[in-house]
Design a protein around this nucleic acid. Structure first.
Lengths: 119, 119
DNA sequence: ATTCCATATTCGAATTTTTGAATATTCAAT
DNA sequence: ATTGAATATTCAAAAATTCGAATATGGAAT
């Protein structure tokens, strides 16, 4: 079997990003560090809930924070990662043409049959 | 308030990818289209469960499938999207230096205070 | 000291996700 | 028509997520 473990931490990162509120927070943090209040204003979501989402992002290592008086500012730990992910989601990717893969299907199936025989 | 709706579908895509088994499936499909059995062999996960995960990926529009006899081959609908996402997760991104953002924090906070006064 | 403001935590209920077990479907071959 | 192989679906239980409500913390200002 292959190593599922290798994907555990990656899945954690994706899971942490996979929420509309958190995506909006991340999009905001791509532009600038923000304190909770600033996020609160643009988000029509209650403050405790925003803190909860920020905690999820922090636990996943996606954001960090820094205190300044009574404010706490959040920032992206790896801006490149978040930009790449948001960019990928924003891109209008070309779709696979089913006819193009039909041949690959055939090859893949034939290879499987050969392997079955030899084992 | 900003449009959370804009992120609903993006969150759905990320959520569908955010599972170790499904990430492993996707990594496999990046290389080649695969039928369920081939995935099953490399995955130490029961076949019905694999079908369930494939259904989740299909419902999210991430994979498509094509029948060939009793086999069903799965493929990536938008290979670029999956490659970009997996690539982003594999990349060793540089981390933000906290000192570099401190100044931005100050500016962001000051801007907030000005806005508060003017409103 | 007290009050206020920004933020965090806790708790609980509702919802969703995950996965095994059992079963169903579908096609091919005999 | 029956059987067998590949895949899908259904159901239920356990686990995890989500979010509101209430409350707590911590620093600033009075």
């Amino acid at each position: 079997m292959s190593d599922l473990d290798r994907f555990e931490s990656k899945a954690e990162i994706l899971k942490a990003m996979a929420h509309p509120v958190r995506l909006l927070i991340l999009e905001e943090l791509v532009r600038n560090p923000r304190c909770v209040n600033a996020i609160h204003e643009i988000l029509e979501v209650r403050q405790p809930n925003i803190s909860q989402h920020l905690t999820i992002l922090r636990n996943a290592g996606i954001v960090g924070s820094q205190k300044d008086g009574t404010y706490r500012c959040y920032f992206l730990v790896k801006p490149g990662l978040v930009k790449a992910a948001l960019g990928a989601l924003d891109t209008d990717w070309p779709e696979t043409n089913i006819d193009d893969v039909r041949n690959k299907f055939k090859l893949a199936l034939e290879k499987r049959l050969q392997q079955d025989q030899s084992s």
